[in-house]
Design a protein around this nucleic acid. Structure first.
Lengths: 339, 339
DNA sequence: ATAATAAAATGAAACGGTTCATTGAACCGA
DNA sequence: TCGGTTCAATGAACCGTTTCATTTTATTAT
């Protein structure tokens, strides 16, 4: 491995000068710049990131922590993050927290000791309102998708309320009356917001009723169970608003098992527009969330914060709060009834 | 940030001794081990990975390069990799090559300068038979999923031949005669193998004919186009073997557009068992590939190779070649005809 | 009690860069 | 010609570890 010393020796200049050339400092004469650059090219020298990290205290590594690395949502986001970081010559450290707070904490700590310059985290939601470590970290952190009470950090979230409201309103507009919501886990701000959006749209038309809310976990299995439960309890359900496409998947299976048709007997709207939704039969009408762009946005926020921190080492501007707009993606899983 | 020096000073011992305690060396007396450990615990000290990397030349970072970070296949594999590495306290550097050779090369170089200890790569296939950089890298490398001619590296692949053979044989067994294959991209060893598996199964029953092979790219869009083309050219297609679930997705859409039913009119078998396949209607019969376990396996191979290299610095055993077994996952997209 | 040996602890060099106070050369005006 | 100023280049200190030759301490045999 070629080192800066060899470059210095061969080009007959000092290590300091070579370093200045590498970093584009303007204090080097044109002659020497060229001379050094030639040697660098000839030897194929690239400065070691490790050494440079140690002395400059900037690693160029960003840590990413998501609950599940393989989730269709997050992997889309990771792609956005990864491509954006790459443009800036930065590396990404990826880890999955498995939605487990202890693991998240240990991952964060581990990353701190790997000296990441910044962190993008989709935080575990069950944390008993303890901002804890998230507020204490001394490096820039951007939170994505889930807002944690009491945590003062840059944030990129979706407008879950509006998305749910729109989805529900769309069902109502198409003349559905008895609409249930498969609400997703409690303790999760984003899922709560979806319930509220649902509730608000329903109440506006006097359709709301607490018994229409069925909570379940964020998975197809849980959606499957909840849908069966709903079908058992309630008669004549017109439509289902599943607050996640994953939940919708399970619900669809359950509905079919009862011999009901979609959208003939029951309409369904999902939330999230995962990769597969448009390939389902019928293609799932759902709320689309721009995860790729969310990843990109999170990175810009992070880089912005990092450069700010470097310029004014003690300056802390208010945390940003960026809201990505959800969009109703109309496909075929809702029966369009004319009034 | 607490450093090893402070730990040394406070515990009244030398830096070297503290380092030995950290690394579990047996040359430290029990008394001092305890003393140091206490100070470490009290101060919450953790050695900096950066510093330790620089001096030991082991970073504990592994590079992962896949064509597409968000692909359902690879994100599953990444999960397997990530969870296995984590157990060993190792970090993962993730990047997407976008199936572009130049990008792959530059990613690899970049990782080299970040001093990763090892690399797991799903290589770009279009490389004009140039092993190139892959053979030259001085660190352990494990290739996954795609075999590149002339590259002598540890490898984890699927038995694409057998999978395709089984899928085709299954169709034949169920009394399908006119079976086409949507073959996926050329230049790709894994897709070629699938064609060969298809061909062999067909030939055994005298059913093969070159006109049954339709090549397309690895995407639903391309599968959609190829299926339409096939439907235009050929009459009475009994069944389709799509050499990827993604291709199957497109094919299904095309088949439906022609007013045909699955599996009533045409049966279809996919390849890959992506996340969504079991949720399709009808659920897609497909070849399942254990991507999660493939990730795990790649990691063990890599770690094995790394420790080998550390023990005998010049020792090079033959590259391993692990074949993960594909499995036919029977669902509902094939019409089961009794003969 | 002493020499020989084993075990434990030390501390400086090394890893490969960055940074910055210092030096040296070049230039300018008087 | 000399003092002052500017611009380049230097090289040593530093970042936080590991490593290993050397020194110190403890143990054992005589």
């Amino acid at each position: 491995m070629v080192t800066i010393k060899e470059v210095a020796k061969i080009s007959g200049l000092s290590v300091g000068t070579v370093s200045n050339v590498i970093n584009g400092l303007e204090t080097v004469s044109e002659t020497n710049k060229k001379k050094v650059q030639e040697v660098i090219d000839r030897l194929g020298f690239k400065p070691s990131r490790i050494a440079s990290s140690l002395s400059s205290k900037k690693t160029g590594n960003m840590g990413i922590i998501v609950p599940d690395v393989s989730s269709p949502f997050y992997s889309e986001m990771i792609k956005g993050i990864s491509e954006t970081l790459e443009i800036n010559g930065l590396n990404i450290f990826l880890s999955g927290s498995n939605d487990n707070l202890d693991k998240e904490t240990s991952l964060i700590k581990n990353m701190m000791y790997s000296w990441v310059d910044g962190l993008i985290i989709v935080p575990v939601y069950e944390r008993e309102n303890e901002p804890g470590i998230l507020n204490e970290l001394k490096i820039p952190v951007v939170l994505v998708n889930r807002e944690i009470r009491g945590v003062k950090r840059d944030l990129v979230v979706f407008n879950n309320f509006k998305g749910a409201y729109n989805a529900t309103a769309y069902l109502i507009k198409n003349n559905h009356k008895k609409i249930i919501i498969l609400s997703g886990p409690k303790h999760s701000r984003s899922f709560e917001d979806r319930v509220i959006g649902f509730k608000e749209a329903m109440e506006e038309k006097g359709l709301y009723d607490g018994s229409l809310v069925f909570s379940c976990k964020y998975s197809e299995k849980s959606g499957y169970g909840a849908m069966h439960k709903a079908l058992g309890k309630l008669q004549n359900i017109d439509a289902v608003f599943a607050s996640s496409d994953l939940i919708a998947l399970g619900a669809i299976a359950a509905i079919r098992e009862r011999g009901l048709e979609i959208p003939g007997d029951i309409s369904i709207v999902g939330f999230g527009d995962i990769y597969l939704s448009k390939y389902l039969n019928p293609p799932l009408t759902t709320i689309k969330r721009p995860f790729y762009n969310t990843g990109k946005t999170a990175v810009s926020l992070l880089l912005e914060r990092i450069s700010q921190q470097r310029k004014f080492s003690d300056f802390k501007s208010e945390p940003a709060r960026i809201i990505m707009q959800d969009l109703l993606e109309v496909r075929k899983s809702v029966k369009v009834k004319s009034v």
